[in-house]
Amino acid sequence: MYRIIVLLLVVTLFHVSQGFAATELLNVSYDPTRELYQEYNKAFTRYWKQKSGQDVTVKQSHGGSGKQARAVIDGLDADVVTLALAYDVDEIHNKAKLIPKEWQKRLPKNSSPYSSTIVFLVRKGNPKQIRDWNDLVRPGVSVITPNPKTSGGARWNYLAAWAYALKQKGGSEASAREFVGKLFRNVPVLDSGARGSTTTFVQRGQGDVLIAWENEAFLAVNELGRDRFEIVVPSLSILAEPPVTLVDKVVDRKGTRVVAQEYLKYLYSQEGQEIAARNYYRPSDRKVAGKYAKLFPKLKLVTVDQTFGGWTRAQKTHFADGGTFDQIYRPGR
């Protein structure tokens, strides 16, 4: 009996350790990119085999963007990170020095091979007549959005609402603050990640409108029924640039720098861009963007750099402890 148990232990250990033996990349990403990278990983494995003759498997880890950055800081061996916003990647430099300070200059387009924006998802027929941001602060409209403290997507949502209020006639910091405060009083529940909020809205049927990533909204409509939801594009939104970078200390230790670099570069290729577009991310490549222009409605987009003076400042003013979000949002009111 004892021998059998020991044998079992050895066999299982062997199996587990074997799982780590082949050339392998770990891509630590945020919530809504699951489907994108499932498709992209397959394409890249094929491409790399053709180009170098080597087999590579890409493993995925998904979660709230801030949480994922934290895991990398704490030692999750990510070869590349593909997160929701530059601030979370900055944290990997600030807290753990795993990447250089100038990481964002290493790849084109601020290291964002694709972009996205923030739109609304409403129930079929739009029963509450939601057309733009100012409809979200009407009394009796229930708004679903995740928690900006933990979710990258939620921070984009928050800043998009803030920018809208700011750009109205007579808009000021004070009026924006009041506007966003009013909006968050209409939020009954804050999930910790974007995908959690989508599930709350779509599966549990809570709320009249979901503020969501454009790709997440498309996915919800296509996966779960065109007859149940529709997308509303507001008059103004924010240009969301989810950045990618390789984690230098990890790839150098694992000896995977070359393949990791190629993994990110290939995101900018024709095929990579097409995959992004098919998964409802706005491609950065002009030609591919033109091909999929019908899919993505044109709207006025502001950027974090212009409107909020960059992510570090936006983070400090709005989302740090005691920042405007903490002042605005008091649960249960």
């Binding site: 799982g19 493993k59 880890s61 998904h62 895991a71 995908r195 599930t199 996966e223 779960l224």
Partner: peptide, 22 residues
């Protein structure tokens, strides 16, 4: 866990992931 698919997900974590993937 770190939530690496096919490597560090236990059954309960896998359930959550599948649910979140619709």
């Amino acid at each position: 866990s770190g939530h690496v698919r096919g490597a560090t997900n236990t059954v309960p974590l896998q359930v959550e992931i599948l649910y979140n993937e619709y």
